[in-house]
Design a protein around this nucleic acid. Structure first.
Lengths: 209, 209
DNA sequence: TCTATGATGCGAGCTGAGTCTCATTATTGT
DNA sequence: ACAATAATGAGACTCAGCTCGCATCATAGA
């Protein structure tokens, strides 16, 4: 760089296309491995993408980032996930749908999700590359509260979001399946109940019958 | 073996003392590393215990088992943990104390706890070597319900235990600190609230006012 | 005291996460 | 077409989790 802008209308520096192609190949390989149930490791992804491991690391700082981006690409937006309750203004119903959606996604990409948790739990710093899902869903599910409860008792809504951040999670699902030995379907039902209970409790506290 | 019982009153085979000594040395080294905040790895523990890494693995099948046993040895029993509310029959209060106790312990042994989670999350099979804490505390905290709610609505109590299994956990704490960027004290307060809300909601559902 | 055997130590090896360096390519502007 | 340079590939290296085999040493029991 330095002498002047490139003639091409494209992005600034150098070899953008090649870079993009490689990046996509890696992501796609990761996605395919994830969906096929395989456990996703850098060596495997690199091999599948016909790329050297070093190159994979050049595009993604670590496995977690790769997995995160790969999953993000597969996931519907919170809005799409909550499409079925787009018209509902009942937080309990919306939270239930959001929870089920999150948990089923986790179940589908269980291997990758476990790898992500394992990776981020030992390095809290790198955990920033991850939150999206949970919080996006929770916020949208609780959107109806914005001009109601949130106006009268913002602290209650904040606490509810914290409650749900704990419950609407892969960790919750795995706690029940791995530690309590529940089968996945039971576990999903249970977590949905928990999330509903919390949401309803908050509403009831605000408007006791 | 086979010709007859050994003359000594001690346990059956071979070199029991030496084995015990070594085992203890390893455990103690692990405990000290844990408490000093260091991250606990097999090489480190072995070095500190003046034992070869191979020997450490001879006594403990894997790092997780070692950590689990080391922590278990340091932890007060559920009864001791709930001593301050031994006389209370209020589930909400008892759950709150149990939750705080669990979370503070997790915070104290944060490094080891994170390592345990990372290790068990990728191998659900080996997760059995771990549950004790959470479930023991929850059961004891909810003991007052045994001859009340549990008699009239056992399903409600079962669900509550599932609710709490998700919330009264290291994972819950780390979700708030790592993902929601709360500081540990805030996070503890929040999780206690969540656990209280769930417990109270269950009680209220049983005896609506 | 002597010995059979169990407990250890040592070191090689394998896998995956990551990092680094250096030699090759491939791309792109001229 | 060609040169400048960015992107790759190859391979070495560190670290931790784990497994194995083999040599050694200590201990219990006769």
């Amino acid at each position: 760089m330095g002498t002047g802008e490139p003639t091409t209308p494209q992005a600034s520096t150098g070899r953008v296309n090649q870079k993009l192609r490689t990046r996509r190949a890696i992501l796609q390989a990761a996605v395919e491995l994830m969906r096929s149930g395989h456990e996703v490791t850098m060596p495997e992804v690199a091999k599948a993408a016909l790329v050297s491991e070093a190159t994979a690391y050049r595009h993604f700082p670590d496995l977690v980032s790769l997995l995160q981006e790969a999953m993000a690409g597969q996931m519907p937006s919170p809005a799409e996930a909550l499409a079925s309750v787009a018209d509902s203004r009942d937080p309990v119903e919306r939270v239930a749908v959001a929870t089920e959606h999150l948990l089923r996604t986790v179940l589908t990409y269980q291997g990758a999700t476990r790898a992500m948790i394992a990776g981020t739990i030992t390095r809290p710093e790198s955990a920033d590359a991850r939150p999206a899902m949970r919080f996006g869903l929770i916020d949208l599910a609780l959107a109806p509260l914005d001009d109601t409860l949130a106006a009268t008792d913002p602290a209650a809504v904040r606490q509810l979001k914290n409650d749900l951040a704990v419950v609407v999670s892969a960790e919750a699902l795995f706690a029940l399946t791995d530690l309590a030995h529940m089968d996945p379907e039971q576990a999903i039902v249970s977590v949905i109940r928990t999330a509903s209970t919390l949401t309803r409790a908050t509403l009831d506290a605000a408007a006791p019958r």
